[in-house]
């Protein structure tokens, strides 16, 4: 469906994208995860034919785009990172324009606009000016505008930035519907939980380079530990009241990979939750550490990114 090979793009001395490849089959959702400035937007722009790559290729259904007017562009729907809407016009007027860009007018445009608005749940607000929409509604309209010509491939460039959790969920529901309809999604984000929720495969990029490219399970396998035991302690001192928790002793236990104390919560990375949990709790009790809550956690993509780059996604 979509084959992207070794894309490269430099702006002056800055290498914005440095050898990004991705392959997406029909119905597959690929996540492009990376911090701000990683090169996600530039990659998406090259796929959509807006930016000419310095090298590498993009093939859609086996064919590269031949110029601005290549009809194959109709297979792509682009949801730009910036809200690409005319604030002063109504939602209806905006969508009529965007439908017309793909030669849709009259009844065909009307049907397409109706369906798109239905999907994103804005059918009752079509005659409002966009400037009167909330941030979340604008994001949903931004998505709807890319769906009018019924593209097979959707390029979603951070489609949820700056929206409230409720709108984000609404957008996710929309995307899941599109996924079920068999669309191919390329989803860029710097929120790891979004990539986790939606994507079949995640490509992690940093400074324009791919640092990991795998299924979720595959990525988790990159982690030293995937299971964490989180224990909220009453008190980090031991029973005698004068000595702290001895993390190095804890780490020395068989089956324990890591131990970290943060804000009264002890996180222990273990190989096997079932066998290590009782042992760790017993170790704590023996040393007089009282706890009031125990939970198990899974390592997430944030940890994967941290492990791969030594930096956190958000402050990268």
């Amino acid at each position: 469906m979509l084959e992207v090979d070794a894309l490269k793009k430099s702006y002056g001395a800055l290498v914005a994208v440095n050898g990004v490849s991705l392959h997406a089959a029909a119905g597959e959702t690929i996540g492009l995860l990376g911090p701000n400035g990683a090169g996600k937007t530039t990659t998406v722009s090259m796929i959509a034919g807006l930016v000419r790559p310095d090298s590498g290729s993009v093939r859609i259904e086996g064919r590269t785009l031949a110029g601005d007017t290549d009809p194959n562009k109709r297979r792509i729907g682009l949801v730009p990172q910036d809200l690409a809407l005319f604030d002063e016009l109504t939602a209806q007027a905006n969508l009529e324009l965007f439908a017309a860009l793909y030669d849709l007018d009259g009844a065909a445009a009307k049907r397409a606009i109706g369906e798109a608005l239905e999907l994103v749940g804005l059918a009752d607000r079509t005659n409002d000016r966009v400037k009167n929409y909330s941030g979340g509604m604008k994001r949903r309209l931004n998505l709807a505008a890319a769906l009018l010509h019924d593209p097979q491939i959707l390029l979603l460039d951070e489609p949820t930035v700056g929206v409230d959790p409720q709108s984000r969920n609404a957008i996710f529901d929309n995307l899941e519907v599109l996924k079920q309809r068999g669309k191919t999604l390329v989803y860029t984000t710097h929120y790891m939980e979004e990539a986790e929720r939606l994507c079949d495969r995640v490509i992690i990029i940093d400074h324009g380079k791919v640092v990991a490219d795998d299924t979720l399970q595959g990525l988790y396998r990159l982690l030293p530990v995937t299971n964490l035991l989180a224990v909220e302690l009453d008190d980090t001192r031991d029973g005698d009241g004068n000595d702290g928790l001895r993390l190095n002793e804890l780490q020395a236990l068989p089956g324990v990979r890591s131990a970290k104390l943060e804000a009264g919560t002890l996180r222990v990375g273990v190989e096997d939750l079932a066998t290590e949990t009782p042992r760790i709790l017993q170790w704590l009790v023996e040393r007089g550490h009282l706890y009031h809550h125990v939970a198990s956690e899974r390592a997430d993509l944030e940890t994967v990114f941290l492990t791969l780059t030594g930096r956190s996604l958000r402050d990268a």
């Binding site: 807006l50 562009k73 792509i76 730009p80 990172q81 690409a84």
Partner: peptide, 12 residues
């Protein structure tokens, strides 16, 4: 802004 991208993404 993104509008230009939207125009240019279309086969025009």
């Amino acid at each position: 802004r993104g509008l230009w991208k939207r125009f240019r993404a279309a086969p025009l």
